[in-house]
Each structure stands twice: as structure tokens, then as C-alpha cells.
Simulated scan of single mutants.
Amino acid sequence: MADTRTVLVIGGGASGNAVTILLRRAGIAVDLVEAKDDWNATAGSGITLQGNALRVLRELGVWDRVRESGFGFGSVGITAPDGTVLHVAEDIRADGDGLPATVGMQRPRLQQILIDAVRASGASIRLGVRPESLRQDGEGVTVRFSDGTESRYDLVIGADGLGSATRAAIGIEDRPEPTGMAIWRVAAPRPEGVVRTDLAYGGPAYIAGYCPTGESTLYAYVVKARRDRAAVPPASYADEMRRLARHYGGFWPEISAHITDPARVNYTWFDRLLVEGSWHRGRVVLVGDAAHCCPPTLAQGAALSLEDALVLAELLTGAGTWGEDLFRAYYERRITRVRPVVEASVRLGQWQLDGVRDADVPGLMGRTMTMLRELP
């Protein structure tokens, strides 16, 4: 292998941005291509970042900006639909007193922080470009791009999300599957008394919750049974979400008053995916949602993706040779951690779908988060 190693990262979401920053820090030449011209800079409403995600963000060197931009808190409340608090669980700190247990923040703000760090890393960035073909041999990968150019790399990292074209291109046939639930999300002003995540189970929605994302903002969400997307036209998103939210008490009436613009409401399905066996073929390896995804019932999607980037970068920068043993070690180290989170996230939703009234929701959350205290 040449002294200057070259890597192509496909996709500029959390995992793609993170692995780019870490590899550039080690002096590896990285090209990042992102299919969207805007680099997803305005996508999404809010995100919940728990301790294992915050550890990676600190390692990336962006923790100070995350702390300044988000809202830190240390507990989650379980409420009745009328707003009565039934149970408050202290969130498990992944880093003792060094980091908050949880930070909520606006998702576009997190993306911009990561974008700025990628740009500062010196990576080569091309937006509005996607690979059209990957041709492998024993030494590397030749990639043909949609802009007509062609380049050669020692390694290709597929960080192109749930519908990953990279995953399909290397012959991995796993595809995301709907879990039976869908979610409406919206960013809104934060009532002064909202200082943690609260989750209401029951009522017309399976779950109704909110998370503070800053001094004056939060994001709120309601979860219902999945419907055909054609039966939920975008123009109705605000009306649909407000119709569900009006049955909830506590802070919900104040939040609901701001659910007026359908363009600000996002409606998506819950999916699950776990690629088994390996996350690579030859010199192409998957990270993040391209390899696994789970419903946001544990708020671990971005955290697991960031962990993938950290572990893969650690292995790549610490190895003299990039080969089968390294990629196998990456998979084995990640699958034992990712699988129980995917399974627990799906189980939490299935309990709601099945109407299980004695489900130990706090217990399952606590056991899973205790496991995630350990380093990845």
C-alpha cells in the first residue's frame, strides 16, 4: 500500500462526517461525496444525544460547540396522557461527571457543526455527486462518479444511509423493513417548564413526547400506526399532528399552538435494519444507517452511527495493513453492541403495537443504557 492512503467516504451524514474528521486527523487523504447539494444542512427538527454520542462528539473536537448549541439534562419522565408524571428515571451518565447524561439540540445545528469540522479537516468535498460504479481488485477500488470523473482509492466507506446504494452495489441484499409505526416531528418554542424529555404512552398515539433543544426551542413528536404515505398528504401534516396532540395535557396545549405549518412537520416511518455476517465486501465497508437502523424509541440511531465511525477510524489508523482481518474485527466489535440496541428499540415499539400493559419500559431502557456506558 502507498504511504499516503486514500479513502472515499460516500455520504455526509453523522457517520460519514465523523469518520472523515478522524481519518484526516491521522493524515489519511479523504474524499467525501454527498448526493445532496445542500449537504443536508437544513434537514430534520431535533435530535437527542445521549452519553455515548457525546463521547464521540468530544473526540471529534466539537463538544464545546455542541454544549453551547444544545440543552443538557439528566432525566426522562414517563407521563399519563393528561400530563400526570408517573415515573422519572435518572439518565445514565456514560462519562461520570465529565459530560451531561443527555443533550437535546436542533438537528440542523448539529449537522452544521460537523460540516464545519469536515471543512476544517482539509478533506476534499464534492456535493451533488454520487458514485455510479465501484470496481474492486485486491489492492483497492476504482470509482466512477456521476460527474463523469473517475478515481482510485485504497478504501471506500459507505455512509449513505438507510437506502444505501453502496450496500446494494456490493451485493448485500438486506433492506430496511417497516416496524408498523410512523412518527410526526416538529420544532417549536420551548415552554419554560420543559427541562427534560417526557414521554406519554397511551391516548390516541402510541407515544407523545418532546425534548428541549435549546434555551428557547424543543422538538415534539407523536407516534402512531404506520399508514400508506399516499394517504397522508404533506399539506395535512400539521393538521394530523395537531389532531393527535390535542388529546395530551401538561405542556402539550402550549406546544400544539405552534403546530400550524405543514412544511415544518416531518412524517416518516419507523424502520429496522441489521446487516448480519459482515459489513464489508473487499475494500468497501459500511457504517451507520447503511449497516443498521432502529426506531428512535431509545434515541440511539445517531449515537450508534457515530460509534461506528470512531471504531472503524481507530482500527484503520492503528493498522499497518487494511485487510480482511481488520474489517472482520470491526464487524465483530460493533455487532455485539448494535444488535441489542436494535432489538430493544424494536421491542419497545412492538409492546405498544401489541397493547402490552405491563411492559417494563423503564427497565428495558435502563438495562440497554447501562450496557452503552461501556466504551464501544
Rank of each mutant, 00 (worst) to 15 (best):
R144E: 00
D239A: 12
M1R: 00
S133D: 05
Y153W: 08
F270N: 13
L99M: 10
L312C: 06
I255K: 02
I170P: 04
A94C: 11
L199Q: 10
V341S: 09
A43G: 09
Q50F: 14
P234T: 06
A302H: 09
L348Q: 05
Y219D: 14
G104N: 00
P100M: 05
R337P: 08
G148A: 01
L54E: 10
L274E: 03
S146P: 09
R281E: 12
C293V: 09
P178Y: 00
R67W: 07
A208L: 01
A120I: 07
M241T: 14
P189G: 07
R175Y: 08
V311H: 11
W269K: 00
A313F: 03
P253E: 02
P191W: 10
E307K: 05
G363V: 10
L49I: 04
F145S: 08
L57Q: 00
W252Y: 09
C294T: 08
L273K: 11
R243T: 14
A35S: 15
V311R: 06
M369T: 02
G138C: 09
T166K: 07
P131A: 04
V285T: 10
A313W: 01
W184Y: 15
A200L: 08
T166G: 02
A302V: 12
R126E: 00
I172K: 07
A205I: 01
V156M: 09
A29D: 15
A41T: 14
A182F: 12
V186M: 03
E324L: 00
T260P: 13
G98A: 15
L315F: 04
V19P: 00
E192L: 10
A29K: 07
V186S: 15
P176M: 03
N52D: 02
D147L: 05
M365S: 04
Q352K: 10
R264P: 10
A182D: 04
L316K: 02
E68D: 12
E240N: 10
G163I: 12
L54G: 06
D64K: 14
V275A: 02
